[in-house]
Structure formats: structure tokens, C-alpha cells
Simulated assay, not measured.
Amino acid sequence: MAIEQVGVVGAGTMGNGIAQVLAVAGIHVVMIDVSSEALEKGVATLTGSLDRLVSKGKINAEARNAALARIDTSVEYQRLATVDLVIEAATENAELKTRVLRQIESVVPSETIIASNTSSISITALASTLADPSRFIGMHFFNPVPLLPLVEIILGLQTSHETAEAVRELTLRLDKSPVSVKNSPGFVVNRILVPMINEAFFVLAEGVATAGEIDTGMKLGASHPIGPLALADLIGLDVCLSVMDVLMKDFGDSKYRACPLLREMVAAGHLGRKTRYGVYRYE
């Protein structure tokens, strides 16, 4: 099927980034969130991102304006009634995502594909909450969405071949690189990456080195473009903790135990860049 209109539920970091890349690729977007304030903030963020692309010569002003014109916003799920695909980008919480997905399914046509941008939650389990699980799939973008080329396409046990092919074709149209993976806790990237970040918190908590020294060591010693603790701040410490908890619950292996320091910082609301305070402080 040809995907020309896409709904994005969630105007936060991931949602507005996904909306941006869709709009730049020439696709009409309907971005949904619970409040007009959240939507305004999301549009302001993606507008700033587009402005930076213009200043760097990546796109011209005409392309920026055209992309913004393709984005509509609403607090009403009924606005999704005409879209070909809906991408859920709500907070990484299984109960919340289930409620959102059921609400999406109640308003979209039977042929509309429903995808989740979850970074760790079982696609098979989420699909099972829908009346038609064959049209459900995982479409995991990476932050920052406009810059990182990877999209993990996760097939649940029930996902149809037609659904997978349509999403893969769309991913290529967005100038992204799709990687198809089987449904598994954390999928591929986060199953490897987030436990590494978690271990960096253990090293920090034990006083083996400072945060800056840990990050410098991994950048210079392992050729990582960003240190694990700075990356945690970029991802969001709450998201990292959620991924670790999913891995621990689903695998039942103590190697996935979240570092107490990570859990404590999340409890304090020190979530990283989005709160301007995580491992590091941000102005």
C-alpha cells in the first residue's frame, strides 16, 4: 500500500522528530498529543531543528516551509481517521501504550497500519491487545531522529508480510536504513547498548572514575562518538531505566539489574537533557 498520510501520537522528543522526517520526505503528518501546549512545544522543537538544517545548508528555506505546511496538530484522535499509518510515540510504559493503541484502533480504518516506536516493549504482546494484530509492527527510530539513519523494524508473531513490506518501503523513502529484527526484549541495539550504559552508572557509583573520565575513556578507547553517560542524558535516564527493567523482567537474568544510582536519579527527576539535569547539567 502507498503511505501518503501518517499520524504520530506523541509530540515529545521522539514524536516531533518522527513528524519532522516524515514531513521533509513529502508526507502529510497529523501529530496528536493530550494538550495544545505539548503540541506547540513539539512544533517549536521541530521548527528549530529544521532551522538548523537550513543554517547548515542541508535543506533550503523553501523545503523547510513546505515541511512545516505538511504538519497538522490536534488533541482529537478522530483526526487519524484518514491516515494510512499511525506511529505511536508515547512514553515507554506498556499500560499507557496499550491504552493509546486501542484508542488509535477505534478511529482508524481497517487497512491502516499501526506501529509503535517502543524501544524495548514486546511487539507481540502489544499486538495481542488489538482486534487485528496482523497490521501492527514495531518501528523503532533513534534519537535524534532527524540525524540517526537507523530504524529497527520489529515483527511480532502476528505481523503480516504486507505490513512489514509497507513499513520497510516507507523507511527507505525517509532516507533511513531499516534493519528487520525478531521480537525480543530490547530488540538488538538497546539490548546491547543500554546494559553498557547501565554498567557505566555502576562504575560511576563505585567511584572508579568521574563521569567525564568515563565518557572520555569510552570515546578515546572504544571510538564511541559520545560517552555512555552523556548518551544516557541524551536518551533520557527514565528511558534507560525502563529498558533495563523490561530486560530484567523478560529475561529474569540478574545481569540486567538496573544500577541503584540510575534508579535514584530517575526518582529525583534528574532525567538528562530534557530536564536540563542528569549526569551533567545543561543550560
Score class of each variant (00 low, 15 high):
Ile3Asn: 12
Val8Asn: 07
Gly10Asp: 14
Ala11Trp: 01
Thr13Ala: 14
Ile18Val: 10
Ala19Leu: 14
Val21His: 08
Val21Asp: 11
Leu22His: 07
Val29Tyr: 07
Val34Ser: 05
Ser35Gln: 13
Ser36Ile: 12
Ser36Lys: 14
Ser36Val: 15
Ser36Ala: 15
Glu37Gly: 12
Ala38Pro: 08
Glu40Arg: 11
Thr47Glu: 04
Gly48Asp: 02
Ser49Leu: 03
Val54Trp: 00
Asn65Ile: 07
Leu68Asp: 10
Asp72Ile: 02
Thr73Gly: 05
Arg79Val: 07
Asp84Cys: 08
Ala94Pro: 03
Glu95Ala: 11
Arg99Gln: 13
Ile113Glu: 05
Ala115Gly: 01
Asn117Cys: 07
Ile121Glu: 00
Ile123Thr: 03
Ile123Lys: 03
Ala125Met: 06
Ala125Cys: 02
Pro133Arg: 09
Ser134Gln: 15
Phe136Ile: 09
Val145Ser: 03
Pro146Ser: 10
Leu147Ile: 12
Leu148Pro: 13
Pro149Lys: 09
Leu150Gln: 12
Ile153Val: 14
Ile154Tyr: 08
Ile154Lys: 03
Leu155Gly: 02
Leu155His: 06
Ala166Met: 08
Val167Ser: 12
Val167Trp: 11
Leu174Gly: 12
Ser180Glu: 15
Arg191Gly: 00
Ile197Leu: 04
Ala200Asn: 06
Phe201Ala: 04
Phe202Tyr: 14
Phe202Thr: 08
Ala205Phe: 03
Ala205Trp: 03
Thr210Gly: 14
Ala211Leu: 10
Gly212Arg: 10
Thr216Trp: 06
Lys219Glu: 10
Ala222Trp: 13
His224Leu: 10
Ile226Cys: 09
Leu229Ile: 05
Ala230Ile: 09
Ala230Asn: 05
Leu231Lys: 01
Ile235Pro: 05
Gly236Phe: 04
Val239Arg: 00
Leu241Ser: 00
Ser242Leu: 00
Met248Arg: 15
Met248Phe: 13
Lys249Val: 11
Met265Ser: 01
Arg273Ser: 10
Glu283Gly: 15
